[in-house]
C-alpha cells in the first residue's frame, strides 16, 4: 500500500492519473498534455506501473496506458477501514469510561 501512496504523492503523477481517468492513452498523448519531456513521463509511468496503478498494452507500434481500478478500490476500502478502526477504538473508550466512572462512584460511596 505504501508504494501506492508514494506513487500518488507526486502532483505530476496525479495529473497523469487524471488524464487516464478520462480514457486510456498512448505515451505520446500524455507527453503532449504535460509540460515535461518524454523521459520524465516515462519515468512517472514506470513508477505508477510498479505500484500497480496503471497497466500497459501494445497496440501496433504504440504502448497504451490505462488505470487499474482494483488498486484504487483497494485504497478506497482501506480508507473506509480506517474509520471502522476508530469506531472500534471509541467503543473501547466507552467501556473504559464506564469502568472509570463506576470505580469513582465506589470510592465516593
Amino acid at each position: 500500500m505504501d508504494d501506492c501512496l508514494q506513487a500518488l504523492a507526486d502532483p505530476r503523477r496525479r495529473q497523469i492519473v487524471e488524464l487516464l481517468l478520462e480514457q486510456d492513452r498512448p505515451v505520446g498523448e500524455l507527453v503532449q498534455a504535460l509540460p515535461i519531456a518524454q523521459s520524465g513521463v516515462s519515468r512517472h509511468l514506470r513508477i505508477l506501473k510498479d505500484a500497480g496503478l496503471v497497466h500497459v498494452r501494445a497496440q501496433g507500434q504504440q504502448r497504451i496506458y490505462g488505470l487499474r481500478p482494483e488498486r484504487f478500490e483497494e485504497l478506497s476500502t482501506w480508507l473506509d477501514r480506517y474509520r471502522a478502526l476508530w469506531e472500534e477504538r471509541l467503543d473501547r473508550f466507552e467501556t473504559v469510561l464506564k469502568q472509570a466512572q463506576s470505580a469513582k462512584a465506589d470510592k465516593e460511596s
Binding site: C4, L5, A7, L8, A9, R14, V17, E18, L21, L67, P69, F72, L75, S76, L79
Partner: peptide
C-alpha cells in the same frame, strides 16, 4: 494522493 482516490 487522497484527491486521486476521491476523483477515481
Amino acid at each position: 494522493w487522497r484527491s486521486a482516490v476521491d476523483k477515481f
